[in-house]
Design a protein around this nucleic acid. Structure first.
Lengths: 345, 345
DNA sequence: TGTCGGATTGCAAACGTTTTAAATCTCAAA
DNA sequence: TTTGAGATTTAAAACGTTTGCAATCCGACA
């Protein structure tokens, strides 16, 4: 069995003081004589005393934890930025000594039920919710429960105010269109996913808005929709786009994984990028830098976003009555070699 | 403030039973009449009752958490498989309803002090330790503290028994050598790192052992050592290898990031892979599939390893007196296009 | 009717901390 | 010497759960 944990009671006995005094001394209360405070602090340091989290949580009602439900993934797919996200979140939380709780979802269980469990058991003082769906029962629950949370992403119909941070995909896709238009492209392809996630709409709408802004009737947009996690179907959708009656000269993909697939299929079809086809992605995952000829994309700086989300959540936990915090991050263009002038003729 | 949390007391009052009975009924104790058990279970379900973690932990001495210290990284580098690792760990833990605690290390703080805090505060029932160093103070502490843990990786001088899971890098590097030797290669390069991590030695020793086994005095091995996180110095070390008096025909890298750098620098030097140079990596990170011409490497199946680590840790926590668990996973060769016959002449 | 035994339920302590309210101490002023 | 104000310390309750032990209930048997 593990060596005995030092407790307040033991420390108090050793110092011939009451538990109360020791507790207060360690908390730095002014009412305790300075000499006593120092004596206690030193003894605690020597004994390697660390207050018991459970006891503290029980009495204070604060756990010092922030929760997050691990995204569910198929056997061979991992959230490509989970690592970055978690790292950033840790950075954002560490200043307050807050730790992160990751709760996995068991087979056949719902993400909501896990979230509920985290909340109701008092494990966490607040939670982070990622991958927001168009209609998101998690947000509905948290709101009704009035539990502190920050969402990474937005709802579509914002019928209530809440704390969120999002990357401005609409802006990025508008920027992508403008850049490609200026390079002479008129026939565009968009590869998107079938899942009801908000970011899909925001990005597509951003693209559509930019097209509308330009007001050029010769601009054409073909949309290919692929299930997110079915690789075969994804390839099929992409090839329909590539081998249609008329091929777009520029393809914008909802995120890098799709863009990389587009580049692979284009290569397989004998197309040279960017001479025959321009491709632009979103996220800037590691592989995008390596995939020839280097994918032009937008950096979503997940780590930085997650760090801010952590900080926001700490704020929300600290002051539950504060006005909702919202933050829209503008992703930066990472210009590599997968885009160029529209092919002539 | 959040809606009131349902508590045992409230549930008991509502059912006109004692707290004890309700607690026992929910725990499924046989001594409670079946009818009562059913009545209580139903009421708890209706009320959405979830037992308070802190209270339960306090009395039982078990937190239901497993801890891990977030690896420290520079501003732009993230542990490339943290996401996979965390996902796997979650999968391994979820069956027992155990959650994962991730504790970040603040600037200027030591990883050991954070680990200590996690342990001493009773936050976790066990911990996972990754990236084992040649002499690892974390393992020394955990052992002396007799606290349940599983290490991902081994110590060099195993002077005490403990629970570990490791990928058999030695075997993989031997396999790589054999394969390359059979392809005619005689002059080898190894790109390794300067940090005192065990896996460095194990892999290098595996390579050396394979060379010795072959007993061919014409085999030559040049070793380039680069600091792990200094990209500039890394490139420099690689180029020394590429532009020495005599260039190796095959380069084995300690892990994929290094191998990808080798391929980049080789391309920059006008070399064609694998015609002029064979390159083999280790880990099979996502980018390795995309980097031209596709990196031959070994799949370390981090997710699967992490899952097993989670399961091992649960076992260790359940039975502290059990014999140490050890597990050596043999990585599988992922044969892509970066290796081939040695150039003739 | 009284008693016994098994089935069922409840009381109270304990886990380690924080905090309210009260007790004690110290020392200068009266 | 007494008084009292301020400084310092403490006792005890509380947080929500689990659990050892004791109490109660019920029907059967004598």
């Amino acid at each position: 069995m593990p060596a005995r944990v030092t407790t307040l009671k033991e420390l108090a006995a050793q110092l011939d003081l009451s538990i109360t005094t020791v507790s207060r001394a360690l908390a730095g209360h002014q009412q305790i004589a300075l000499k006593t405070r120092e004596r206690v602090t030193e003894a605690a340091r020597q004994a390697g005393y660390v207050p018991n989290t459970a006891a503290r949580t029980l009495v204070s009602g604060r756990s010092g934890f922030v929760g997050m439900v691990l995204p569910i993934r198929g056997p061979n797919l991992v959230d490509s930025f989970l690592g970055e996200f978690v790292t950033g979140l840790g950075e954002g939380l560490v200043s307050h000594g807050t730790d992160l709780i990751l709760a996995a979802v068991a087979q056949g269980q719902s993400e909501l039920s896990v979230l509920r469990h985290v909340v109701e058991s008092g494990r966490a003082d607040g939670v982070v919710v990622t991958r927001i769906a168009e209609v998101d029962e998690r947000l509905a629950y948290l709101r009704q429960r009035n539990f502190p949370f920050v969402a990474h992403g937005r709802l579509l119909d914002i019928d209530f105010a809440y704390n969120w941070l999002d990357t401005d995909g609409a802006h990025a896709f508008g920027e992508a269109f403008d850049m490609l238009y200026d390079l002479g492209h008129r026939h565009f392809g968009l590869v998107t996913i079938a899942e009801p996630m908000t970011f899909r709409h925001l990005r597509q709408d951003g693209l559509a808005a930019a097209i509308a802004r330009r007001g050029d009737p010769s601009v054409r947009l073909d949309v290919a929709m692929a299930p997110r996690f079915d690789r075969g179907a994804r390839i099929q959708a992409i090839n329909r786009l590539l081998h249609g009656a008329e091929r777009p000269t520029a393809i914008v993909a909802l995120f890098d994984e799709l863009a990389l697939s587009v580049m692979e299929e284009a290569a397989r079809a004998g197309l040279t990028i960017p001479r025959d086809l321009s491709v632009i992605g979103f996220d800037n995952i590691a592989a995008s830098a390596y995939a020839p000829p280097g994918l032009t994309t937008f950096d979503a700086s997940i780590r930085q976003c997650a760090r801010e989300i952590g900080e926001m959540l700490l704020t929300v936990i600290g002051d539950r009555s504060a006005a909702p915090l919202t933050r829209l991050i503008r992703p930066t263009l990472v210009s590599r070699a997968s885009h160029g002038p529209a092919p002539t003729g």
